[in-house]
Design a protein around this nucleic acid. Structure first.
Length: 271
DNA sequence: ATGCGGACCTGTTAGC
DNA sequence: TGCTAACAGGTCCGCA
């Protein structure tokens, strides 16, 4: 469900409501997520103040004075700040109970998400240390992508979805960005010119920024932390539009599978 | 080192 | 209408 814009939308939604709050306790109803929620997480964070809510790729980081809670939303996760008295529903796996009676509640039906805790520098955490640049930062640029891609036979779509290359480009926005840049998703990453990578970098930045502004993409059930849907869906050019006319040339949008993921593109506009 | 496929889960939708 | 299969926004891991 959540790609980077959805994670960023979530971060912006919860940050002002939990920052500065002391954590009264952690309630874990279902510890079996992508990795087990640490058994001692409650004793680790109990009494700590949430100093800041940051993001690295799609990982949300809740910083306290003694360590960092690392949260990933996986495919179906969402976070909301609600009144603690609101009864937990079936897939509400973890609550961070705050001193003010509110609580940060993680719901994740498919349980691909994660809640971890580290006392070390989170950036050095196993899951974060090999991540590539942030797509909206200046070190993600055409020179970088071009250099990284030389001799790579992998498809350009899988390449930009590789978090070691760049974080935050998920399945929807990969298709959308390649469409905007006019690049065929199956083209080998090593065969894409620097000029095309320049277009691709611009496309990725534009698409992600626009999606963040719209509050993310609601396909099925993504809702922002305030429970409202995101509005990016109406701006999708190719994703989910199999057989529908290309917004640029009118030819039917093609669907195929790349790296086990649904991919949408226009064979006329993308070479 | 690189690339590929499997794995982890449940809910919704498509198809017969 | 009902059952079953396919598919879904992520990404780590092990194997070739």
């Amino acid at each position: 469900m959540p790609e980077l814009p959805e994670v960023e939308t979530t971060r912006r939604g919860i940050a002002p409501r939990i920052k500065g709050q002391r954590i009264e306790k952690v309630i874990v109803r279902q510890p079996k997520l992508r990795w087990p929620v640490p058994k001692n997480i409650n004793q680790k964070v109990k009494g700590e103040v949430i100093r800041d809510v940051t993001r690295r790729g799609k990982y949300l980081l809740l910083n306290t004075d003694t360590g960092t809670m690392i949260i990933h939303l996986g495919m179906s996760g969402s976070l909301r700040v609600i009144n603690c008295k609101l009864a937990a529903e079936k897939h509400d796996h973890v609550d961070l109970v705050l001193e003010n009676g509110q609580c940060l509640r993680l719901r994740d039906p498919r349980r691909f998400g994660a809640v971890l805790f580290t006392t070390d520098d989170p950036i050095q955490h196993k899951l974060l240390k090999d991540l590539g640049p942030e797509p909206l930062e200046s070190d993600f640029n055409a020179d970088y992508l071009f250099a990284k891609s030389r001799k790579r036979s992998i498809t350009v779509k899988s390449f930009i979805m590789d978090s070691k290359i760049v974080v935050g480009v998920g399945n929807i926005y990969a298709s959308e960005s390649l469409f905007r840049a006019g690049i065929h998703p199956k083209k080998a990453a090593g065969k894409v010119s620097k000029e095309k990578y320049s277009l691709l970098v611009k496309a990725i930045k534009t698409v992600l920024k626009t999606a963040i502004k719209s509050g993310g993409t609601t396909l099925r059930d993504f809702t922002k932390s305030d429970g409202k849907p995101g509005y990016f869906k109406q701006k999708l050019n190719v994703y989910g539009r199999k057989g529908l006319p290309c917004s640029h040339c009118g030819k039917a949008i093609t669907h195929s599978v790349i790296g086990q993921r649904a991919t949408y593109y226009c064979t006329h506009c993308q070479k």
